[in-house]
């Protein structure tokens, strides 16, 4: 049976359409993260792409380098004078009211009041200081999206030129309206040059809902978070953060300068949920024991 030219045309159109949506292949199936990459040297360094942060990124110094269990990366809470923070009187009182499981003033498990242990959203900036492992970044012409591995959370940073909302008491002002506080706040980013994005965030949650880090350092809803993402080369991105929070800290200070390494885009990023049910099981069996009580 002969096929008419019209049918041949339709068939070709369908084939072309399928090809346009063909997927890239992953020869090894479900690749696991490679934490043993060779260092970037002059011999293997490739130029950074212009105005692109897209990729799957992990701490360049190894899987645990972004954990920040002892406090924010540049100021671990270890009691050393150089790591003391410029607290205001209120900030200092607030810190003392926080009972953390980590840091210089750690308490036993059942005495803590970390919102993390109720699986509350950590908010910005604490997501930047909690177990940064594989972090995926996607972008289009309007925005950048960060997918945090911990608790499978996502965050939007607008890059379409919109203004940062005005920070007011209890929220932000947008077009004359007072808008609600958000765990991730309101973020806008601007390219400082072709390889550096500066991001400002305001309008975050109040200090009775969120902490800065796992050692109980406080952060308030008056914070202005400034992050820079600097693409040094194709494989390296440096994520920095400075906080300005006059309610809690008497001057701005830098929390993080974390180098990230590009991973294979096919890497399978595993779930890392904070599940209240799993948390409860763990607390009953092990957490209570760590507090000096019998468990199992």
């Amino acid at each position: 049976m002969l096929i008419s030219p019209v049918k041949v045309g339709l068939l070709l159109a369908v084939l072309v359409r399928v090809d346009a949506y063909a997927q890239n292949s992953s020869p090894s199936g479900w690749p696991i993260p490679d934490w043993n990459k060779p260092p970037i040297t002059d011999a293997n360094r490739k130029p950074a792409p212009r105005r692109s942060l897209a990729g799957t990124w992990g701490p360049a110094e190894g899987a645990g380098a972004g954990t920040q269990a002892s406090g924010v990366q540049l100021k671990p809470n270890n009691g050393k004078p150089e790591n003391q923070l410029p607290y205001t009187t209120y900030g200092s009182e607030l810190y003392r009211s926080h009972k953390a499981l980590e840091g210089a003033d750690a308490v036993l498990t059942t005495q803590d009041n970390d919102p993390r242990n109720r699986c509350e959203p950590l908010g910005v900036p604490r997501y930047n200081h909690y177990n940064i492992r594989l972090t995926q970044i996607f972008q289009d012409g309007y925005k950048i999206v960060i997918l945090y591995q911990y608790d499978n959370r996502w965050r939007l940073i607008w890059t379409d030129g919109r203004e940062l909302p005005k920070l007011v008491d209890g929220g932000v002002e947008i077009g004359g309206e007072i808008r609600e506080q958000r765990f991730f706040g309101y973020s806008v980013g601007k390219w400082v040059d072709d390889y550096t994005l500066e991001v400002q965030t305001v309008g975050t949650m109040p200090e009775d809902r969120v902490w800065l880090d796992s050692t109980g350092r406080p952060i308030s809803d008056q914070v202005r978070v400034t992050e820079t993402f600097r693409r040094l080369d194709y494989d390296t991105l440096v994520w920095s953060e400075t906080l300005e929070d006059p309610k809690i800290y008497s001057k701005p200070w830098e929390t993080m300068r974390l180098p990230l390494r590009l991973h294979d885009p096919r890497t399978d990023v595993m779930e890392y949920y904070c599940s209240p049910v799993e948390q409860e099981i763990y607390d009953k069996r092990f957490g209570k024991a760590a507090a000096g009580k019998e468990a199992r």
């Binding site: 380098a65 499981l101 750690a106 036993l108 909690y130 796992s214 507090a291």
Partner: peptide, 11 residues
């Protein structure tokens, strides 16, 4: 590397 514990490391 430092662990991120859901309990006090003091134990």
């Amino acid at each position: 590397n430092p662990l991120l514990a859901h309990h006090s490391s003091a134990a």
